[in-house]
Simulated scan of single mutants.
Amino acid sequence: MLREFPFADLLFSPMVICVALGLMLTVATRALVPARLLQTVVWKRSWLNLSLFVCYLAGSMALLDGVS
């Protein structure tokens, strides 16, 4: 079960960590995949970015839930 964590007398949701991790992984994936490949294979880059973010977010939440 995911629980909030205290930092500077404030309680933060574990979703903060998951969103940050998902965003970093999405940006890293986007930087590693060549732009030419995306132009030939993927027509809508924004949908690809959104789907990558959602998949990474779900994966990070599943991993953090397993760790706790």
Score class of each variant (00 low, 15 high):
residue 1 M to I: 10
residue 1 M to L: 10
residue 1 M to R: 12
residue 1 M to V: 09
residue 2 L to N: 06
residue 2 L to I: 06
residue 2 L to W: 04
residue 3 R to C: 07
residue 4 E to L: 08
residue 5 F to Y: 15
residue 5 F to Q: 06
residue 6 P to V: 15
residue 6 P to D: 12
residue 6 P to K: 15
residue 6 P to Y: 09
residue 7 F to Q: 13
residue 7 F to A: 11
residue 8 A to Y: 11
residue 8 A to P: 01
residue 8 A to Q: 11
residue 9 D to V: 04
residue 9 D to H: 10
residue 9 D to L: 07
residue 10 L to S: 13
residue 10 L to A: 12
residue 10 L to K: 15
residue 10 L to Q: 14
residue 11 L to C: 10
residue 11 L to V: 13
residue 11 L to G: 12
residue 12 F to C: 02
residue 12 F to S: 04
residue 13 S to N: 03
residue 13 S to E: 04
residue 14 P to I: 01
residue 15 M to I: 06
residue 16 V to Q: 13
residue 16 V to K: 12
residue 17 I to V: 08
residue 17 I to T: 05
residue 18 C to P: 03
residue 19 V to A: 06
residue 19 V to T: 04
residue 19 V to I: 06
residue 19 V to E: 02
residue 20 A to P: 00
residue 20 A to D: 04
residue 20 A to M: 04
residue 20 A to W: 04
residue 21 L to D: 05
residue 21 L to T: 06
residue 22 G to F: 01
residue 22 G to S: 07
residue 22 G to K: 01
residue 22 G to A: 07
residue 23 L to F: 02
residue 24 M to R: 07
residue 24 M to A: 12
residue 24 M to N: 08
residue 26 T to M: 02
residue 26 T to W: 00
residue 26 T to G: 00
residue 26 T to Q: 00
residue 27 V to H: 03
residue 27 V to P: 02
residue 27 V to Y: 05
residue 28 A to Q: 14
residue 28 A to M: 10
residue 28 A to D: 09
residue 28 A to R: 07
residue 29 T to C: 06
residue 29 T to V: 03
residue 30 R to I: 13
residue 30 R to N: 10
residue 31 A to V: 06
residue 31 A to C: 07
residue 31 A to K: 03
residue 32 L to Y: 11
residue 32 L to T: 11
residue 32 L to S: 14
residue 32 L to W: 08
residue 32 L to K: 09
residue 33 V to T: 05
residue 33 V to K: 00
residue 34 P to A: 02
residue 34 P to W: 00
residue 35 A to Q: 05
residue 35 A to L: 04
residue 36 R to K: 14
residue 37 L to G: 03
residue 37 L to A: 09
residue 37 L to I: 13
residue 38 L to G: 10
residue 40 T to M: 09
residue 41 V to E: 02
residue 41 V to H: 04
residue 42 V to Y: 00
residue 42 V to C: 01
residue 43 W to Q: 12
residue 43 W to P: 13
residue 44 K to H: 13
residue 45 R to M: 08
residue 45 R to V: 07
residue 45 R to K: 07
residue 46 S to F: 08
residue 47 W to C: 07
residue 47 W to Q: 12
residue 48 L to R: 01
residue 49 N to T: 11
residue 49 N to D: 10
residue 50 L to C: 06
residue 51 S to D: 12
residue 51 S to V: 11
residue 52 L to I: 15
residue 52 L to Q: 14
residue 52 L to H: 13
residue 53 F to Q: 00
residue 53 F to K: 00
residue 53 F to P: 00
residue 53 F to T: 01
residue 53 F to Y: 02
residue 53 F to V: 01
residue 55 C to R: 09
residue 55 C to S: 13
residue 55 C to F: 15
residue 56 Y to Q: 06
residue 56 Y to S: 05
residue 57 L to C: 04
residue 57 L to S: 02
residue 58 A to M: 07
residue 59 G to K: 06
residue 60 S to A: 15
residue 60 S to Q: 08
residue 60 S to P: 09
residue 61 M to H: 10
residue 61 M to L: 15
residue 61 M to P: 04
residue 62 A to G: 10
residue 62 A to R: 07
residue 62 A to W: 14
residue 63 L to S: 11
residue 63 L to E: 15
residue 63 L to H: 14
residue 64 L to N: 07
residue 64 L to E: 08
residue 64 L to K: 05
residue 64 L to Q: 13
residue 65 D to Y: 14
residue 65 D to F: 10
residue 65 D to K: 15
residue 65 D to E: 15
residue 66 G to I: 07
residue 66 G to T: 11
residue 67 V to Q: 08
residue 67 V to D: 05
residue 68 S to E: 14
residue 68 S to R: 15
